[in-house]
Design a protein around this nucleic acid. Structure first.
Lengths: 210, 210
DNA sequence: TTGATTGCCGAACACTGTTCGGATTCTAGA
DNA sequence: TCTAGAATCCGAACAGTGTTCGGCAATCAA
């Protein structure tokens, strides 16, 4: 797609990306409260007003950062080897999810808490954060396919009237709960993530295998 | 304790509680972004500066609101009948947790996401939000005792080298993940909470029973 | 009746996101 | 090449935020 762009469009895209990159860096270093229009502007040698040529509001910037975060999460999970056995594959997918959360805590919390709330109203039509999550090339899709494969192979067993997607949601719940609880509570009690994550995953696998 | 207070202290406590009550109401109606010092002050016929006689900062107000929220969550879970069989008891505890989250979504999200982050630094010493969570008369304590009882009765089985507290953390992860994922994602996809919660709890119980 | 403390407020400060008008600079068409 | 118009960008301002400070009353202790 970059080949079909005019020089003007390329400049625009470059500036847009520079804004998003600095915004993401500030979030990862100073947290979401340390992110201001003026701090972004100063970092890229722009006037605060100048940013509004590229984004309509601060929320739109944060939304775009989160949207790219979903892609990063997808790529992290897509790197897990699908040739692994069913159980190991699902566990490794979960570990990729958790590593992402542990590496970028503020970013992860932003993507899954404050972001979906306040930005639901003015996200680009057809590109809401939930559609983004469920759509093609999303992290959740990888999980659905992994669970579906396990069910077909007879490795995982469905509950009564349970669909594969619902099973995937349950897997998501388990790993997401681990990430959220560790980020907001357990890590301050010096409880290591790997320790509790292994237990949680083991119990979950025990619950869905026969 | 209210009996040992001087009239002056009673007045102070009354005003403090009025501040916290209005703050909680604003959070539940307008969300956390709708909460401002000036909006609280206007609601109780005070000047913005007047509130600083009772709380040192806005964050201290939010912290106190969250702290009282922990108590409300504890009371909700304490009302579950302990005479229930092990499995039903744990499930009902989880349902109480989920009902709380569904009834006060913004409040719940505040308690478990933005709050623990930003207020860790200047919470009253010995009263950090995590100590609050793990301490006596906390919601988590109820869960620990419930799991411990189930283990003693042989209803629940521990993993290798797993403690009862770790098992309780896993139960917490499961129910917390359900709450968070539904509040931030699933409810916008019109997925009913009861539906997905039942599956999640069933799978978890299946994972910890022999 | 003093003197001091408490309770409360108006005004101000530094910050935030955002808008608007006016400068530049770039670009496309005759 | 010249010019009209669009694309960029900025300074200044506005409304809102949390917070501080000086001072004015009311209350309380001696």
């Amino acid at each position: 797609m970059a080949l079909t762009m005019t020089p003007k469009e390329r400049r625009q895209a470059k500036t847009r990306q520079a804004i998003l990159d600095t915004a993401r860096k500030i979030i990862n270093s100073k947290g979401i409260d340390g992110l201001s229009i003026r701090s972004i502007a100063k970092a890229i040698d722009y006037s605060p007003a100048g940013l509004y040529e590229y984004f309509a509001s601060k929320e739109e910037i944060v939304w775009a950062v989160c949207s790219q975060g979903q892609n990063r999460l997808y790529e992290a999970m897509a790197q897990v080897d699908p040739a692994l056995p069913d159980v190991e594959y699902v566990i490794e997918l979960g570990s990729a999810y958790l590593n992402f959360a542990a590496e970028y805590p503020d970013f992860f919390l932003l993507m899954f808490t404050t972001a979906p709330q306040s930005m639901r109203n003015q996200a680009p039509p057809g590109k809401e954060i939930d559609k983004e999550m469920m759509g093609q090339d999303s992290a959740f899709t990888i999980l659905v396919e992994a669970m579906g494969r396990g069910v077909e192979n007879g490795t995982f067993v469905l509950l009564q009237n349970q669909t594969v997607m619902e099973l995937a949601i349950n897997a998501w719940i388990q790993v997401h709960g681990t990430a959220m609880l560790w980020l907001t509570q357990l890590r301050y009690l010096n409880i290591p993530l790997e320790h509790i994550a292994r237990q949680s995953q083991t119990t979950f696998v025990r619950g869905i295998t026969r």
